[in-house]
Amino acid sequence: MTVDVNKTDGPADPTPPAGPEAIKAIPVRHPWRYVSAVIALALLGAVVYAFAQGEINWGAIPDYFFDDRIIDGVLKTLLLTVLSMVIGIAGGVLLAVMRLSKNPVTSSIAWFYIWFFRGTPVLVQLFVWFNLGLVFEYINLGPIYKDYWSSFMTPLLTALLGLGLNEAAYMAEICRAGLLSVDEGQTEASHALGMSHTKTLRRIVIPQAMRVIVPPTGNEVINMLKTTSLVSAVQFFDLFKEAQDIGQNAGSTVEMYFLAAAWYLIMTSVLSVGQYYIERYYARGSSRTLPDTPFQKIKANMLSLTNRPAAGGGA
């Protein structure tokens, strides 16, 4: 409820009375913030020193950082992450809807799928896809396509199936939680307006479920980006595989691991920022003010560290 400060009752006063004097108090001191900052910096310095002393040829990292093979690996890693997540999200939504459906057949199928793919390691699944040629010698799609399994199942396809289908099982649980989080009154209101099940799901339930689905999905994307490093095992030349190969040929194995780690860090950092903006988008209408952007947050943190109140009075 708002209080009208400038209420003028009684005889009209030509000049409104001046408000109370602004508070000028000495802010609370936070000495431990400085102490902990100093300790953290000291520890960091010690670690950096230790690594700098070690027998690591740091010069090799900048030499190879933008090497064609590394860049190619980075792009392949990104491609694999995106495609696997697309398969995972599409499959996950489908499985979640199946799991929640009234039809006992579809919900059991979904349950079984999730049980199987969540219950086995993704590396094992990758090898199984890779070696499925032992079970199916040919792949035969009638007149459209016919080939040996081994030449059909390229490393890319193996990687996509292995990572994507496994991801779908995890995404299914995330989506299910999201769908269940939407108030039943929403479905009811939508049905009462004459909207079909599908329209209700697509227009009303899923957009609201996104608020619950997006944050863990962001984690899944970041996780996926790192998990793609497993596909070197099925001969897919992603960032990790390229770095490993260069390292072995140039005799700088550890250096190339550091290089790969740096690239992974860069990519996950960029993804985190993207996630933030997507979350902000789906938060619309759910709260009265949108959350701060990362830059606003950083600014606010800096200001609070220097003990000044954050700009905009956000407290």
Binding site: Q186, E188, A189, S190, A192, L193, G194, Y282, R284, G285
Partner: peptide, 17 residues
């Protein structure tokens, strides 16, 4: 059939998004 019947709920049930 439901298109022809409007319903108003105790808790409004507006679509928040």
């Amino acid at each position: 059939k439901r298109r022809d019947i409007g319903m108003v709920f105790q808790r409004f049930n507006l679509f928040p998004h």
